[in-house]
Design a protein around this nucleic acid. Structure first.
Lengths: 153, 153
DNA sequence: CATCATTTGTCCGTATGTATT
DNA sequence: AAATACATACGGACAAATGAT
């Protein structure tokens, strides 16, 4: 029934599996917050090895689509509402993946306990405000930058 | 010489290996663009299984620190100069990981041929300009957003 | 042009510790 | 308490593509 793995396509099998699972997520067959089948089950479903499933899950983690909890399983990432963050004129902003330190510092207490930090696949904003104020690092999955319209003062 | 893996720390071994390699990268012992030792060599160096090394490399790929080329090896991600991109007042910006389509569309021709798309660990900006213009999706590793100062017109 | 060694991708068997039931 | 399920980790093995000889 599910999933045709094409071994002659040249596309790594783990990516084909990842694509199939991602399609199931986007199609709503796995809902946000729900647990995926276990690695062994997924391996059986797609008729591939466990290693391949593990790589596919790592791939989806890197995309931020799922988070994996040690000794529990992999969960579809929950949707969060983004909080507006106002950026002053003249600022510069880059997006990048967080450092290990930032992953620890930006985590909620729950995430820190469960995952050891913010999940994989979550980028950060690094904001350099105009003058010589300190730069800010914000979680990319929880904020939305709002460019302030010019004020008349 | 290199790397002490602490099996009693509770920290997964693959993460300890990833941390050790990352430290080597940040310390400049592996330069941008250089090939890492092969998986087999790394496994020997840290005295762990190849599975563990592969997981560590997947972890570093997700961080954008390295890119892996099939049948060739893993390379330290090259540094690029960011191009300035001006954002109009009133716009909203989010950062997220790209979809598979975007990974293909935003790749250079070289990346498309070598990796099949932009590398893992590269986030994107999604910019919603004020009115009802089309949204823009830009590579997070190549651009730097510049918030335009208010103009007087 | 042909051959060979290297390297990643993939699969399998097995073992262990831990969380949940 | 006991059993089950699962992530983590090790080892061996082969295929296919690449690069060097």
């Amino acid at each position: 029934m599910c999933a045709v793995i094409d071994y002659s396509s040249g596309v790594p099998v783990y990516r084909q599996v990842a694509n199939a699972i991602r399609d199931d997520i986007t199609a709503g067959r796995y809902r946000p917050g729900a647990w995926l089948p276990s690695e062994a089950q997924l391996a059986q479903m797609y008729e591939v090895g466990r290693d391949t499933v593990r790589e596919a899950l790592a791939y989806l983690r890197a995309e931020g689509k799922i988070t994996t909890v040690r000794k529990r399983g992999s969960m579809v990432a929950a949707e969060v509402t983004r909080e507006a963050h106002h950026v002053p004129p003249g600022a510069r902003v880059i997006a990048r993946m967080p450092t290990p330190d930032e992953r620890r510092d930006l985590a909620t207490s729950v995430e820190l306990r469960e995952f050891g930090g913010i999940p994989e696949g979550v980028p950060v904003f690094e904001i350099f405000p105009g003058a010589r104020k300190h730069r800010k690092v914000l979680r990319g999955d929880q904020v939305e930058l709002v460019i302030d319209p010019p004020e008349n003062k």
